[in-house]
């Protein structure tokens, strides 16, 4: 039964590889591919929590935002400039720690709530953090942090340029792979079984001896830290600035929800498929029909959800049950 349980991971990595090669070598394709990968990574990270617990974290973007702040604070601190390119390591660490601390705190309180109550509580966290940064004027307040200069100082102008145009996107690929690996590990371990049981019925999971509180918190923490890594890379390093209005925009949470639902919650390949469709539509609709993209995107998403109520991969998984393809889809 467990033979080939990691095959779906190879499918995901295969898709990433094709995307990467296509983006790298086809003229002018790097930008759309980077956008698609950003959405895939956002979806995979979000799915670690939503897919395994059934809880919707509306405050998801706050962890992406804090992650980008974490990276920006490290890069812009003069005491670390001597590290050269190694500065990115404490940058990622700090991003993860900041998101981790907030996730542990929020989880300990908000995860006592269930379903819709949890969702409402988490919206407040995002707005709270944003207004706190702006109101208390910490970390540049509403003006944010611009790291283009310190990044050049630390990495040298040549490498700094390469980071913003290529390496930041490449790291997003890596984070997407990391999130996919975590997902497949979850799918096949005691922790994952416990989470799936609690997603299905929390009271029943508890009487089976699942430590529901602990597991929910672990999934929440892991998902939040992955989000912080995505934020630190795709926002801070790529754009070289962090503005509170941008990095705490609720719309990114909505993007994540749509990607995961469209692709299939709790599946490994769901966020990949969802991110692909979402990224492609968003990018090309924006070019072909500027101003009309939402008008087309919204009904399109509604149609997909009607046709594939369990997400595209969720429905596909049922179709291939008992066939050879089965072990490649999860």
């Amino acid at each position: 039964m467990n033979k080939g349980k990691y095959y779906p991971l190879f499918v995901a990595i295969g898709i990433f590889l094709v995307l990467f090669i296509f983006g790298k070598f086809a003229q002018g394709m790097w930008e759309p591919v980077a956008l698609i990968m950003f959405y895939v990574a956002v979806g995979e990270a979000f799915n670690v929590f939503l897919g395994f617990t059934g809880y919707v974290n509306f405050g998801y973007v706050v962890f992406m935002g804090l992650g980008s702040y974490g990276m920006a604070l490290v890069v812009s601190s003069s005491s670390m400039a001597g590290l050269g390119p190694w500065i990115l390591i404490p940058g990622f660490l700090f991003a993860a720690i900041m998101a981790g601390i907030l996730a542990a705190g929020v989880g300990a309180i908000a995860l006592r709530l269930r379903g819709a109550y949890f969702a409402i509580a988490t919206i407040g966290v995002n707005q709270g953090v944003k207004f706190f940064i702006e109101g208390a004027k910490i970390w540049g307040g509403s003006e944010g942090i611009i790291i283009s200069k310190p990044l050049k100082v630390a990495l040298g102008p040549h490498l700094a340029n390469a980071v913003t145009t290529f390496w930041a996107d490449f790291l997003v690929f890596m984070i997407a792979i990391l999130a996919a690996v975590i997902t497949i590990v979850f799918l096949h371990t005691r922790l994952g079984y416990g989470l799936i049981a609690l997603r299905e019925d929390e009271d029943a999971a508890r009487v089976m001896g699942v430590n529901t509180t602990k597991y929910k918190n672990i999934a929440f923490l892991v998902s939040s830290i992955l989000a912080a890594l995505v934020g630190a890379t795709a926002w801070c390093l790529k754009t070289t600035y962090v503005f509170p209005d941008d990095v705490f925009a609720l719309s990114y949470t909505v993007d994540a929800i749509v990607i995961v639902m469209m692709g299939g919650t709790g599946t490994l390949l769901g966020p990949v498929v969802g991110g692909l469709i979402y990224g492609i539509l968003k990018y090309w609709l924006g070019i072909l029909l500027p101003g009309f993209q939402l008008l087309i995107l919204a009904p399109f998403i509604i149609i997909i959800i009607i046709l594939f109520p369990e997400g595209i991969v969720g429905v596909l998984k049922k179709r291939v049950r008992g066939k050879k393809l089965e072990k490649f889809i999860a």
Partner: peptide
């Protein structure tokens, strides 16, 4: 309180969680 989307067998096996 069954796990509605899991199969009968998966439900039973979840019982052996500890």
């Amino acid at each position: 309180h069954v796990f509605p989307n899991l199969t009968v067998r998966e439900n039973i096996l979840m019982g052996a969680y500890t």
